[in-house]
């Protein structure tokens, strides 16, 4: 029974890794590649470490496997955010069919600051109703 679940976790985790690598190769621009690799990659590696914890069923090994999963879950989003931010700042082009780029024209490359967003439309009808 232990071997069955270990094999299941290993194969499913490795399959998620393949999905992540497929996304890395097939996706058209940097943010989409990040989206594919961080989520599917962390899930794949985490499932494989769960397989290790299930197979040994030992306190020390389980603690270390949980620590690996915790580090992966903590570090992967931060690393993805840093790479995506750096990629946007150095001018990596987005996919040509991307609909919106809300930072376009509002980011200052010299000072690394953003202009404030354009004014929101005030709900004028609500103002009249208060009188």
């Amino acid at each position: 029974m232990t071997e069955f679940f270990t094999g299941l976790f290993l194969v499913v985790g490795a399959a998620f890794m393949v999905v992540a690598a497929l996304g890395l190769v097939r996706m058209p621009d940097l943010p989409m590649r990040l989206h594919a690799t961080t989520k599917a990659g962390v899930l794949g590696a985490g499932l494989m470490m769960v397989g290790v914890a299930v197979y040994f069923g030992d306190g020390g090994v389980t603690t270390r496997a949980v620590a690996v999963i915790g580090f992966l879950l903590l570090t992967a989003p931060v690393a993805a955010h840093a790479i995506g931010r750096a990629g946007y700042f150095v001018g990596v082009p987005l996919w040509e069919h991307s609909k919106t780029d809300e930072l376009k024209g509002r980011y200052d490359e010299k000072t690394h600051t953003l202009e404030s967003p354009p004014e929101m439309h005030e709900p004028a009808a609500k103002d009249d109703a208060s009188h």
Binding site: G13, A14, M17, A20, A21, L24, T37, T38, G41, V42, G44, A45, M48, M49, V68, L72, A79, I83
Partner: peptide, 10 residues
């Protein structure tokens, strides 16, 4: 490279 590091963990 980051994905390859995850693969090495696997």
């Amino acid at each position: 490279l980051e994905l390859i590091a995850s693969l090495t963990i696997g």
